[in-house]
């Protein structure tokens, strides 16, 4: 499979990644090569095979619905790029 520049732009947007204009064709080439490698899977007969999501057939463990964690907001916000009054600040979303 060969990816076009427009495919790279679309995927980068979905992934919320800015990709420099000058790098797009290199990404298109590299990603196409990787999909070329992955294409070997098309030839494999997987009829009736159960997909394997995880090495063990484990199910999500449940715990009692009790409060176990304390509030550490101040501690965690020390490493935030921008906060005020206990809130994380981002550019204005609504006018």
């Amino acid at each position: 499979m060969s990816l076009e520049r427009s495919d790279v732009e679309r995927i980068a947007h979905l992934a919320r990644l800015e990709v420099a204009e000058k790098d797009i064709s290199e990404y298109a080439r590299n990603l196409s090569n990787i999909f070329g490698l992955v294409a070997q899977l098309e030839a494999v007969d997987t009829d009736g095979v159960k997909p394997m999501a995880h090495p063990f057939d484990a199910v999500q463990r449940l715990r009692a619905d009790e409060v176990t964690e304390s509030n550490q907001r101040d501690h965690f916000q020390q490493i935030a790029p921008k906060v005020a009054d206990g809130l994380y600040l981002v550019p204005k979303v609504l006018d």
């Binding site: 992955v38 899977l41 494999v44 997987t46 090495p55």
Partner: peptide, 14 residues
């Protein structure tokens, strides 16, 4: 085509 197919092939490897 990709993810589910890969998970099935993963089972074959296992």
């Amino acid at each position: 085509a990709y993810y589910l197919k890969a998970q099935k092939a993963r089972q074959l490897i296992s």
